[in-house]
Design a protein around this nucleic acid. Sequence first.
DNA 1: TATGATTCAATCATAATCGATCACGGACGC
DNA 2: GCGTCCGTGATCGATTATGATTGAATCATA
Lengths: 282, 282
Amino acid sequence: MHLQDRWKLIIDELNHDRVTSVDELTERLGVSPATIRRDLNELHELGHLLRVRGGAMRIEGKHFSGKPAADDRRTQGLQGQSSFLDSSIVNAAAKHAIARTALDYLKPGASMIIDGGTTTFTMASLMANESYHVLTTSIPILQRLLDRSKVRVTLPGGELFREQRIILNPYEDGMLQNFSAARIFIGCQALTKNGLMQSDTLLVQSERRLIERADQVIVLADSSKIDAPASLSVCPLSMIDVVITDDGISQAAKGWLEAAGITVRIASVEAEDIKATEASKR
Amino acid sequence: MHLQDRWKLIIDELNHDRVTSVDELTERLGVSPATIRRDLNELHELGHLLRVRGGAMRIEGKHFSGKPAADDRRTQGLQGQSSFLDSSIVNAAAKHAIARTALDYLKPGASMIIDGGTTTFTMASLMANESYHVLTTSIPILQRLLDRSKVRVTLPGGELFREQRIILNPYEDGMLQNFSAARIFIGCQALTKNGLMQSDTLLVQSERRLIERADQVIVLADSSKIDAPASLSVCPLSMIDVVITDDGISQAAKGWLEAAGITVRIASVEAEDIKATEASKR
DNA sequence: TATGATTCAATCATAATCGATCACGGACGC
DNA sequence: GCGTCCGTGATCGATTATGATTGAATCATA
């Protein structure tokens, strides 16, 4: 019984029952309450469930009972709403590693833009409570940052788009005009030779604007996104500075990314371990 | 049997029965009356039911047939927001009645501004899913309106102020400039002859701007707010069009409000229902 | 208005749960 | 073989929920 197996079973359990308890999971998974608590806390941190006293509760909007594939694909586009059913646990691990690696590019005092998306959402979840200044259009990320007391959060004005869970002003820039960020962290539907791709028109609009306000563009994309199908181009490769991905990327893909002048950063599980080690030394 | 389970069962019970008693819940859930009372009080404070002597009553217009999801989301949305809802339980019934009465002033298609605050938050909770257009600076209200698919929600851009849970741009109007609302629904710290009062400088700033963008100003203030102490004036009485309060308001206060040209609307606290409830139990 | 019954909030004692910490044991590389 | 590292389980003090008790408040009835 490994960590990933347990996590999957816990999520399954919550997809079935609205709430579950530490005791129940202890019995069902055959591990100690301490381990269950650790798992629940971590899953809570990553936004996959809601920790409550005595157990955990499902996050509404993450429950797709019975209807497997079709729904899951649909939810992939939803900001911060991906359930474990969308992508394999392995993929989640990759996203986690990528998000952690992205943290290297933060430094206290810096301004940054964080776009909506599952990986950037994970990144926001892992962010330390430091004196960052974050601009985001994503409601889930806003919620995540609510309890980081040192993080300044700015929202551009606009209208709420429920499906994407973003705030967007189609007509003017509003707050954006005054905001200038050192970096933008951005997810995507796909990354191809044509550039950064999305499949949602609204996202394209939103992201094009955001990219303009940042000096450096950092793309968070797990390797399944590379050369994946998507219809709309947000920006060409030439505008991208860094791509953070996992070790599933092909040499060929790495090649044409670097040929476009992009720094390709590979977040492996080992790299994550190293980071954890370094962190614990301090 | 944990808190979340009990709460769900209590809400289910009310969805089925409209009223329920402490005794009945005690027996059905197998916990002590003390726990039931605590639960009912908390649920009342969170706006999920109406506490009455001996038990609890369903909030009219808040019946979520069969599907637990709707209720769960509400319960969930309130996690970690108890600091936001720190009003006394005594006034909760009044606030609820006031919020309900305020709904009379809505009509589909209308634009409105909803200010932050406990009473306006309750109002947003009770709002039907109609084609309203709402501008708000309040994060909790935004969260509440997330699942009202027909309601257009607009946010002014700006920075997050955690303590007040609002988005505010101290320097410019942003989206506000383009927004024009038929009405603004606004809460307050106090309502005196000097006008609408707050005690938080940020709120004053924010509210002054909002009031300017609305044709009609509707104040939601339970009677304890009348002539209560507060230091900062948001606007004079002359700018207020309607005050919705409960029947605890004194004749004198009603007098000087009406003398200022204000329509005073008194929301009945459903006293009849409560009496009928108790009678039917015996 | 007076009285008894019921309900209530406040208080305290107990039990459950939690997070932090340490110890054990297997996996892995040297 | 040997040590290091990570995940797990166990322990302990602290926190939090629950249940019982009590006196006050509220209500129904006379």
